[in-house]
Simulated scan of single mutants.
Amino acid sequence: MSLDIGARVRFVRLKHGLSQRALAKRAGVTNSSVSLIESNTVNPSVGALKRILDGIPIGLSEFFALEPDAPRKVFFAAEELVEIGKGPISFRQVGESLFGKSLQILKERYEPGADTGRVPLVHEGEEGGIVLAGRLEVTVDEERRILGPGDAYYFESRRPHRFRCVGPVACEVISACTPPTF
Score class of each variant (00 low, 15 high):
residue 74 V to C: 11
residue 50 K to G: 13
residue 83 E to M: 12
residue 42 V to Q: 09
residue 126 E to D: 05
residue 14 L to D: 12
residue 98 L to K: 08
residue 85 G to Y: 08
residue 71 P to E: 07
residue 150 G to I: 12
residue 10 R to T: 07
residue 159 R to Y: 07
residue 168 P to F: 00
residue 61 S to A: 06
residue 125 G to V: 07
residue 31 N to P: 15
residue 170 A to W: 13
residue 22 A to P: 01
residue 78 A to V: 12
residue 159 R to E: 13
residue 107 K to V: 15
residue 96 E to I: 02
residue 40 N to S: 06
residue 176 A to W: 10
residue 139 T to K: 10
residue 83 E to Q: 10
residue 99 F to D: 06
residue 118 R to K: 15
residue 42 V to S: 12
residue 176 A to Q: 13
residue 67 E to Q: 13
residue 9 V to W: 06
residue 162 R to M: 12
residue 92 R to D: 02
residue 71 P to G: 04
residue 92 R to N: 14
residue 71 P to Y: 08
residue 93 Q to N: 08
residue 119 V to I: 14
residue 23 L to E: 04
residue 72 R to Q: 13
residue 84 I to R: 09
residue 15 K to M: 10
residue 111 E to H: 09
residue 45 S to H: 02
residue 15 K to Y: 10
residue 102 S to H: 06
residue 67 E to N: 10
residue 75 F to H: 09
residue 54 D to W: 06
residue 146 I to M: 05
residue 130 I to C: 11
residue 84 I to M: 05
residue 100 G to M: 05
residue 154 Y to H: 12
residue 84 I to Q: 10
residue 56 I to W: 09
residue 4 D to I: 00
residue 111 E to S: 08
residue 149 P to R: 06
residue 178 T to N: 05
residue 68 P to Q: 02
residue 85 G to E: 09
residue 34 V to D: 03
residue 61 S to T: 14
residue 155 F to W: 03
residue 150 G to S: 10
residue 41 T to D: 07
residue 124 E to G: 14
residue 80 E to P: 06
residue 130 I to W: 02
residue 70 A to T: 15
residue 29 V to H: 06
residue 21 R to P: 01
residue 4 D to N: 07
